[in-house]
């Protein structure tokens, strides 16, 4: 075991494929997005209508899984406190690449209505890379689906490379995170 401070085991090396294969895999990735069911803020209340009968995200291949290990997409649904950010980073680093992050609501963009709160992170972009923002307070499920369509488009074109950016600039991201997170230990009451 390495130092407990880092939850990411190591950097996966980059394998290069020919362009046709890359396009094929990107198509498969875009068509099958598994969302980790982890609600971080008030926007998580918009996720259940999105995946159930009314809006039915499964017809686009978007389905939910219960564990970050198998997930492709992390939805940051609303404001992040420092405490939540710690868990979000942990979940994000447990996910296996390629992985994508969707920021939901005005709070993830720039703090939203909590711009002067002592405990709400203003710019989530500083701590984890976000591929698609869905603005609104809160966005309706239609808007989230539109955001997913945007994400699929980005993946198909190979532009959704937030996870690559995170690995390449890992030290910088870690420095930003450590600026506000002093203690990585998660207390016992999480169980």
């Amino acid at each position: 075991m390495k130092d407990n401070k880092y939850f990411l085991d190591d950097k996966p090396d980059k394998i290069s494929y020919s362009e046709v294969w890359q396009k094929f895999f990107n198509w498969a990735r875009a068509k099958s997005l598994w969302v980790v069911a982890y609600g971080t803020g008030c926007g998580s209340i918009e996720i259940p209508p999105m995946v159930t009968s009314r809006f039915d995200a499964e017809r686009f291949g978007v389905s939910t899984v219960g564990t970050p290990r198998q997930a492709d997409v992390l939805i940051i649904s609303g404001y992040l406190a420092v405490k939540t950010l710690k868990r979000v980073i942990r979940v994000y680093e447990q996910m296996q690449s390629p992985k994508y992050v969707v920021g939901l609501g005005a709070c993830t963009v720039n703090g939203g209505m909590y711009y002067d709160s002592y405990n709400t992170v203003n710019l989530v972009e500083l701590y984890i890379p976000i591929d698609v923002y869905v603005a609104g307070c809160m966005p309706r499920p239609e808007a989230i689906l539109a955001g997913f369509a945007q994400l699929m488009k980005k993946i198909k074109e190979g532009r959704a490379d937030g996870w690559k950016h995170y690995l390449d600039n890992f030290e910088q991201y870690r420095k930003n995170q450590e600026k506000i997170i002093k203690n990585w230990k998660i207390p016992n009451y999480n169980w």
Binding site: N110, G111, Y115, Y118, T120, L123
Partner: peptide, 23 residues
């Protein structure tokens, strides 16, 4: 933080970064 002489806006700007917008 809930004491009234605590300046949340200043603290937020210093710690979480300034959001550059009209707001």
């Amino acid at each position: 933080p809930m004491r009234r002489d605590f300046d949340t806006l200043k603290y937020s700007q210093e710690k979480y970064g300034d959001r550059d917008s009209e707001v």
